[in-house]
Design a binder for these strands. Structure first.
Lengths: 148, 148
DNA sequence: CCTGCACCTTGTCATCGTGACAAGGTCAAG
DNA sequence: CTTGACCTTGTCACGATGACAAGGTGCAGG
């Protein structure tokens, strides 16, 4: 082919763009998940090079970092969608973000309480189990019988 | 057809067997999950009536209750498989059951700590957010910037 | 210029436990 | 016999992620 479009990826890189692997390394979100977030619509479809490689700007990477941090705080993708729209809304009220955060805190606490309940029940049983060679075991007995 | 095998389900019922719905109600494990546990091999394939309905004995229901309680304590199916084999082993040592229980307690505590970490981080941010009509919000700022 | 390697593309399957639905068979009662 | 409740199997879905496969792209070294 005439015209010689160079590679287009190297040009993009020279202009400061990232391919997906670089964006992943820079944002802390795996390439796998970046593609996933694109497919489910959490992020818009990335621009492509002539070779069909996705390219990302600094701004895109910034967004990915935002998403990664929100995930680490346990926000669901659905919640992150809301957080992103708030983040990108210059006229947002902080009240909305706070409401979302506190709602998630409540979810976390409910889950924590649930796990603590399991832990306490199990710990009580384990404490009552002598844990030697004999077969009698309050743990198994409790699982077997409703009475406890 | 000659022979008139009665229904075979009603006979099974008269002998004290349960169909899957009754077993579900009696054990607290949904019919859906009973089939699932059978398919993945946690429980052996149920006997069938001529009409191909699964039938369950009191003993089977007892096992299902055991499984249901273990699930409520957060044991994984894999762990339950071990617990079941211990339960059914007359020569088991209680030490093994205790080990499994304490192992699961440790898993629960790890998960609890993880969630508490999220909750604390988020709570700190939310506390610093005034939550009014103004747009500036430490929560969103933190998600956006690495520095914190 | 060719080759090889690293990385990209898409797709599918698996995880774990559960819900929901669909299309068809069985059962019991009216 | 009809009706309705329940059973059978199968598939799709969730949530977020990993792993793998088969094929294309890009770049550097020979």
């Amino acid at each position: 082919m005439p015209g010689n479009e160079t590679t287009e990826l190297s040009r993009a890189r020279r202009r400061g763009f990232f391919n997906i692997g670089e964006a992943a390394a820079a944002s802390g979100v795996s390439a796998r998940m970046i593609r996933h977030y694109e497919r489910i619509g959490l992020i818009p479809p990335a621009n492509r090079t002539f070779g069909n490689y996705r390219i990302y700007s600094d701004n895109d990477v910034h967004t990915l970092r935002f998403i990664g941090r929100a995930r680490k705080l346990g926000f669901s993708v659905e919640q992150i969608e809301l957080l992103l729209s708030l983040w990108q809304d210059r006229n947002r009220s902080s009240a909305e973000a706070k409401r979302l955060a506190l709602e998630h805190v409540a979810e976390l606490e409910a889950k924590i309480r649930e796990l603590q309940g399991m832990r306490d029940a199990l710990k009580t049983l384990a404490d009552r189990c002598h844990g030697d060679d004999r077969p009698d075991c309050p743990i198994l007995e409790d699982l077997a019988d409703a009475s406890r």
